[in-house]
């Protein structure tokens, strides 16, 4: 308390619209996870279910990186210098899943 009294910095008033938006995004993330959870119970395991899972995960990732990490509002060059290298990951996924199938066939 003693420390707080010494403070002479005046906080600016909170922007309620901005805070409300953050909670709304949290609500989206919550709902998307609930949907994934329900689908895990009701849908049979297969390509369709996996596609839904991956799509919903990418949507969640977009909200976390874009809004929470604020990347959506950075300059274009910064956005691309983060997003473009991720293409390597996509390539690695395809290459190694294929490779995994090949290992299975050899065994």
């Amino acid at each position: 308390m003693a420390l707080e009294e010494k403070s002479n910095v005046i906080a600016q008033p909170a922007d309620n619209a901005k805070i409300k938006k953050l909670w709304t995004i949290a609500g989206y993330l919550f709902v998307l996870t609930v949907i994934e959870f329900i689908f895990a119970y009701v849908l049979p395991r297969g390509v369709l279910l996996y596609t839904i899972f991956v799509t919903l995960t990418l949507v969640k990732a977009f909200y976390i990186v874009g809004e929470f990490m604020h990347l959506k509002y950075e300059v274009k060059v910064l956005i691309w210098s983060i997003v473009i290298p991720s293409i390597f990951v996509v390539w690695l996924v395809i290459a190694l899943i294929y490779e995994g199938g090949a290992i299975f066939n050899v065994r």
């Binding site: 906080a11 805070i19 949290a26 996870t33």
Partner: peptide
């Protein structure tokens, strides 16, 4: 799933801390 919710919630509280920091609002 519960663990996932906990982590998402902590992410929201983190972004609220950042938001308060931009306003120099030490208490929040």
């Amino acid at each position: 799933a519960a663990m996932t919710f906990i982590l998402i919630l902590s992410s929201v509280t983190m972004v609220l801390a950042v938001e308060a920091g931009e306003r120099m609002d030490r208490k929040n």
